[in-house]
């Protein structure tokens, strides 16, 4: 039988090959009428069709709302509300960092609140980047659409690279955690440790050592050192997730900002962008919560503290880490293949 390490290496090689192949599939030339951001499409029916129809209605309404603000400042509230709802629906579309945030949550986070904060910050960053591009280039430097396109495309490429980096980092850490769990000694009945404390389990032969865990049969195994599992929250990682998921602005915000600027109402565009970001945060946050719930449900089903449960949990995290890396690499490769 092959050693677990050899299997892991073979698995890694397979995944790497799959990523290279998929990179080609992601390759997609930018639409001639793009605003610098890669966005594909597809018409829909059913629920999806309905969501798309809502977005269309809201996006079409935005320009009228901006115009209304010019004659009546009170219409700004209407514009903000419309932008907010548009953001909620629109974030269901591509981009907007949902895949990144959800996969990161699956790979890493167990705390729901942190997931929501990360989603919120990513959405706000998205708005800020759009405002920086349009405000800095079009407003201050009087740049043309082509310049804005170039800038947006550059930011987009950087964010793809950020996703790949985050993924690689997660794979490294989660791969080590998985190996540690794999190599952990199997269940045995040998007693351990001193200083018995109340245990959650029926068998009371327990300890203050949290790594010493009993399964239903009073067998136990030693959890790998938490430090090698990287379970502790890392600000650096969370920040990288926010940047990777949020640095790519959405075309909708760019277009509204430029339109507002053309109407001499840049501030209305800024307000609309932030309202949109708030809406986006809700959709992304909902997805992040879903990821956390899915993970805890999966762990409950498999019996979280058994050796098997531990392996499933680590395997799941590693898979999610691969997903992030896969997404980032494929996006970068697709970007290059499209010659943009």
């Amino acid at each position: 039988m092959k050693s677990p390490r050899a299997r892991l290496i073979i698995g890694l090689a397979l995944v790497a090959t799959a990523m290279l192949v998929a990179g080609e599939a992601f390759a997609q030339a930018k639409n001639p009428f793009n605003v610098g951001i890669t966005e594909g499409g597809g018409a829909g029916t059913g629920v999806v069709g309905w969501i798309i129809a809502q977005q269309i209605a809201f996006e079409r309404g935005l320009s009228a709302a901006v115009r209304a603000v010019r004659s009546d400042g009170g219409a700004a509230w209407y514009l903000a509300g419309l932008s907010f709802v548009y953001g909620v629906f629109h974030a269901a579309g591509p981009g907007h960092g949902k895949a990144v945030v959800a996969s990161y949550m699956l790979a890493n986070e167990r705390a729901l609140r942190r997931g929501l904060v990360i989603s919120f910050l990513a959405a706000i960053l998205q708005g800020v980047v759009a405002i920086a591009i349009v405000g800095g280039l079009a407003f201050l430097l009087h740049a043309t659409a082509q310049r804005m396109r170039d800038a947006a495309a550059l930011v987009e490429l950087a964010s793809f690279a950020g996703i790949a980096t985050l993924g690689a980092w997660l794979v490294w850490r989660k791969g080590r955690a998985f190996l540690a769990a794999w190599n952990a000694p199997p269940a045995s009945l040998s007693a351990a440790a001193v200083g018995a404390v109340a245990s959650r389990f029926a068998c009371e032969a327990v300890d203050a050592d949290e790594s010493h865990i009993h399964d239903e049969n009073c067998g136990h195994f030693h959890m790998p050192d938490p430090r090698t599992l990287g379970d502790r929250f890392s600000w650096r990682e969370a920040a990288l997730t926010v940047v990777a998921a949020g640095s790519r602005p959405c075309s909708g915000a760019i277009i509204v900002l430029v339109f507002a600027l053309a109407q001499g109402l840049f501030w209305a565009g800024v307000a609309s962008t932030f309202a949109m970001a708030l809406g986006t945060a809700i959709t992304t946050g909902a997805l992040a919560s879903l990821a956390v719930f899915a993970k805890s449900a999966a762990l409950r089903v498999t019996g979280g503290t058994s050796r098997r449960g531990e392996l499933v949990a680590r395997g799941l995290e590693l898979a999610a880490a691969f997903l992030v890396m896969f997404l980032g690499v494929a996006l970068c490769l697709g970007y290059q293949a499209a010659g943009l």
Binding site: G93, P94, A99, I255, L287
Partner: peptide, 11 residues
């Protein structure tokens, strides 16, 4: 979220 790219809408 991986499937989402197929669900764009016109801009």
């Amino acid at each position: 979220p991986m499937v989402a790219p197929a669900l764009a809408h016109p801009h």
